[in-house]
Computed example of a mutant assay.
Amino acid sequence: MGKEQKSPDHVAIIMDGNGRWAQKRGRPRLFGHHAGAKRVREIVEACPGFGVKYLTIFAFSTENWKRTQTEVSGLMSLFRRYITKEARALRDEGVRVRFIGDRLRLDKKLQALMDELEVLTQENDKVHLTIALNYGGRDEVARAVKRLAQDVAAGLLDSDTVDEETLPRYLDTCVLPDPDLVIRTSGEARISNFLLWQSAYAEYEFIDTLWPDFDAELFGEIVDRYAGRDRRFGSVDTAAE
């Protein structure tokens, strides 16, 4: 008798391939980023039907500042427009939005829009959408360790009690469950500094599809494949022996 199949509670996505998608069509990279932003809405709306409660998307990494000034400026403008345009729809559809990453390098207007969207949707519970913006896994851990060290220095935390259950309380994702499934689009098979601590036991799917072509049907197929996996978290399935 097999174990009951279960959909992932938390799916994280590295949304890769916008630039290549645009270039294949002879268009500038920002055209692909706009197409990718539109695809987010479809995947968010599909989550409840697939049993996915939490969705985390990698929108802009700490390394993405190395791109051309034109592309970076265009992306920041896109983020501002996306938040402004989608805010009320996200609220009305029961989506709670959170942002993770270091906000200090982002412009003040964008920071204000992020804060407003979080407050606007804070009572929602249908889908928890987390947007990683100016986010890097190593940067997140470094910031968490700094806050932990400050608490130790202030006498708020005993260093002898620090263990692997302590650090997660200082991470950007402290109120979220760890991801069960991480998907990366565009054919690249690397994790690119995304949710390094949180994904220690996540299942991974690396697919060739470029992000603007990633639709709800494909999302459902990947969720179904996840449900068939045997997740033992280091233990042994004695029933199979």
Rank of each mutant, 00 (worst) to 15 (best):
E123T: 13
R80Y: 00
G49F: 12
R80F: 00
G101Y: 08
R25T: 06
T56K: 07
R105I: 06
R80Q: 12
W65T: 08
S73E: 09
Q122S: 15
G32P: 08
A22P: 01
R98N: 15
V52D: 02
K53R: 15
E71M: 04
D107I: 00
N124Q: 13
I100E: 03
V119P: 00
P28Q: 07
T70Y: 14
D102Y: 09
R96F: 00
M114N: 09
K126R: 15
M114K: 09
R20M: 10
D139H: 07
L113G: 00
T70A: 15
I83T: 05
D92Q: 11
R25S: 05
A112D: 08
E45L: 12
H128Q: 13
H128G: 00
L110E: 02
R20E: 10
R147Y: 09
K109T: 14
F58T: 03
V40W: 02
R41G: 04
G74T: 11
Y54C: 08
H128L: 10
H33R: 08
K24H: 10
L90I: 09
V97R: 03
R41V: 13
R20N: 11
F50W: 09
T70M: 13
V72C: 01
M114Q: 12
G49E: 14
L117R: 02
Q122W: 06
R91N: 11
G17P: 10
L75G: 09
G137F: 00
G136E: 09
R98H: 14
E93L: 09
L133K: 06
R39L: 11
C47L: 04
D92T: 05
L110A: 05
H34P: 00
